[in-house]
């Protein structure tokens, strides 16, 4: 695919900032890097619809870190609020009350809203073909409330509600495949992104901005606080997620899936798991080869199904 792009290397990163310093988010927040980069591509005429999540703290009275407009909506209704904004502007423009400002509406949520409580509203908005962007920064748990299980929590991960003890090795379920659920709605664009792959990320937002309809992104939201890692490890962990194949980078244009990066020599998943305290029980006090193997096999099976 040789589509026009202004993003060829990291040096093409737009210099305009739409995220101000001074946010109350944790040092080293992966989700914040994602938002920062996404807004650089989307530009100033964007309304960010946010719902309860860590990133909602970007708008914490009387301060706001995002330099575009924002609206805070109910947990399960981010896409519905986006719909009202898009439709309201369109209705006023079609009646000639205002000139259509070409505003982009970005729903920004965590995985709790995207995978769980807001899935119904998202399903509705995608099915209705709403012209909007949805960015889920997936930190694989309800981070804002103290890191409880969500349906995005990976297998064997500790969360504060999938405890680890004599009777339990963390989460017993496999992570919900939101990419495929979204894709099944036939949106024109779905993609996964990662902070450690900024060019890939910016290109995907650029591509999406040329498309009308629902444009949906799932970003790995490395969460040092919840995952139990040092803040400086964020990008290193993010890279490992990509290189072990645990976080595939892909897009689906009109339903057709294409991987935008295929790790040729995948690193063992163990290298990724070891970096985070939420997986500590896979290595201590005894090594749980059974669980590590189960995770590895799942990743292997995924990549076996990927045609080049």
């Amino acid at each position: 695919m040789s589509e026009e792009t202004v993003f060829k290397t990291m040096k093409d990163t737009p210099r305009q900032e739409y995220l101000s310093p001074g946010s109350p988010l944790c040092a080293g927040c992966g989700g914040e890097i994602i938002v920062k980069l996404a807004l650089k591509v989307l530009g100033p005429r964007t309304i960010v619809v946010s719902v309860p999540s860590c990133l909602a703290l970007l708008e914490l009275y009387p301060y706001v870190s995002i330099k575009t407009s924002m609206l805070f909506a109910p947990f399960g209704a981010g896409p519905a609020a986006a719909q009202g904004l898009v439709d309201g502007i369109e209705a006023l423009a079609s009646k000639g009350v205002i000139q259509n400002p070409g505003t982009k509406v970005l729903v920004l949520t965590g995985d709790g809203a995207a995978y769980d409580i807001g899935l119904q509203a998202t399903s509705g908005a995608i099915q209705r073909g709403l012209d909007f962007y949805y960015l889920c920064y997936d930190n694989e748990a309800y981070g804002n409330t103290g890191f409880q299980y969500s349906s995005a929590t990976p297998f064997a991960s500790w969360t504060s509600t999938t405890s680890v003890g004599l009777e339990s090795s963390g989460n017993t379920f496999w992570k919900k495949d939101l990419f495929e659920i979204w894709r099944a709605h036939n949106p024109p664009y779905v993609a996964t992104v990662a902070a450690s792959r900024p060019v890939d990320l910016m290109r995907k937002f650029e591509k999406a901005s040329r498309i009308r309809g629902p444009k949906l992104f799932i970003a790995l939201g490395v969460c040092p606080t919840g995952w139990g890692a040092d803040a400086k490890e964020t990008i290193r962990i993010d890279k490992l997620a990509v290189e072990t194949g645990m976080w595939p980078l892909k897009e689906a244009i009109n339903g057709e899936v294409r991987h935008t990066y295929i790790p040729r020599k995948r690193k063992p998943v163990e290298e990724y798991l070891k970096t985070q305290k939420r997986y500590e029980h896979l290595f201590k006090p005894v090594r749980r080869d059974d669980l590590i193997r189960a995770i590895q096999e799942r990743v292997d099976r995924y990549w076996e199904s990927v045609s080049e």
Partner: peptide, 27 residues
């Protein structure tokens, strides 16, 4: 002369109507 949209729940419907009215639309 109104944009008419069918929603998937009342929760979404009322949220959307409220958001539309923030743009200045009569919802």
């Amino acid at each position: 002369r109104a944009k008419f949209v069918n929603f998937e729940s009342e929760h979404s419907m009322i949220t959307a109507a409220g958001a539309a009215s923030l743009t200045g639309a009569r919802a």
